[in-house]
């Protein structure tokens, strides 16, 4: 197996299929998790009919979605309209290629992994904007404008936090970042209070930015269903909608991976025992659980509230954190 994987074309093929499968399965089963979780919060049962405990529900949904006609409405900008679901979903899959799930399981470890993920994350905004713009639906246009403002506003604090972390770890390499946190939880970046006493706050900031970047509630301005119907994706049907949907969940997965790697020690066990893939998934899905939990607990904030939060609170805080880290790193 290992020898086979060292042959480059085979390695590429295996990881390509693996990554796409991972994205598809995650999207499918995270919808189930979302529906089940929402049903727990809302005192209902959730899907129960298709398969035991509703486990086959995502497959039924997928077949239904794939079987639907892809409608391109009259008067839309056809090229952009068709292109934008692809523009949204491809960068996310690219992102997953550089994420180290364990010491050995990484599709392509590159030494600028963090930079690459951050840049590709911003790419999907363009897809959503084009989709909304091309739809020629007034709600979609409003949504597209909102998404751009929102993502620009929240990328800045996210990047600032990432930069301050790079100062601590001295590397953009994600695998390297995790290796630096080997050992118990006291070695995680989250608890490196000696380097920056504000590290837990920085983690929280990063998490908030992640919610906004992935357009999740309470920052779901893109798909504010009670205001904008379905926002930028109102006019999409069938797999066009499906791709947006998949990429939304894939984005959450990538974001949660990033939090896991940057702050929670990746595949390391909190007590230094049996590090491996399972710990990575425990942490990652734990974060995803919290993301879904938040969606079903809080109302949506206003758009200007969202921008105020970023420009008036998050950006100054993350700048302060950056400065503090600078000083602390210099002192140590």
């Amino acid at each position: 197996m290992t020898e086979l994987l060292s042959i480059e074309p085979i390695r590429m093929l295996v990881f390509l299929v693996g990554t796409i499968l991972f994205v598809a399965l995650n999207a499918a089963y995270l919808t189930l998790l979302e529906r089940k979780e929402s049903s727990w919060f809302q005192r209902r049962l959730g899907p129960t009919e298709v398969g035991p405990w509703g486990l086959l529900q995502p497959i039924a949904d997928g077949i239904k979605l794939a079987g639907k006609q892809v409608i391109v409405p009259d008067g839309v900008d056809k090229i952009l309209f068709v292109l934008s679901p692809i523009m949204v979903s491809v960068p996310v899959i690219m992102n997953l290629a550089t994420i180290p799930f364990s010491d050995t399981l990484v599709a392509r470890n590159i030494d600028l992994g963090l930079l690459m993920i951050l840049s590709f994350t911003s790419f999907n905004v363009m897809g959503i904007m084009f989709g909304g713009w091309a739809s020629r639906n007034k709600y979609s246009v409003i949504s597209a404008a909102r998404v751009v403002a929102q993502n620009v506003a929240y990328e800045i604090p996210m990047f600032l936090i990432a930069i301050s972390l790079v100062m601590v770890t001295h590397t953009f390499d994600l695998r390297e970042t995790v290796l630096l946190q080997t050992g118990g939880f006291w070695n995680w970046n989250l608890f490196k209070l000696g380097v920056s006493p504000l590290m837990p706050a920085a983690c929280l900031l990063f998490f908030v930015c992640l919610l906004a970047e992935t357009n999740r509630s309470p920052f779901d301005m893109m798909e504010a269903e009670s205001e904008l119907i379905a926002g930028a994706i109102t006019e999409y049907s069938g797999m066009g909608f499906g791709l947006f949907f998949i990429s939304e969940y894939a984005n959450i997965v990538v974001g949660s991976c990033l939090v896991t790697i940057l702050f929670l020690g990746g595949w390391n066990c909190p007590f230094g025992l049996y590090p491996g893939l399972h710990w990575f998934f425990v942490k990652m899905y734990g974060i995803i659980f919290v993301v879904i939990w938040i969606r079903w607990s809080f109302p949506r904030i206003q758009f200007y509230g969202l921008l105020n939060l970023s420009w008036k609170i998050l950006i100054p805080l993350s700048l302060a954190h950056l400065l503090l880290t600078c000083v602390m790193v210099k002192i140590w």
Partner: peptide
């Protein structure tokens, strides 16, 4: 009313 504001859960309660 809470759904209008984006909070989906209180409806069921």
């Amino acid at each position: 009313f809470i759904i209008d504001l984006g909070g989906l859960t209180p409806l069921l309660y």
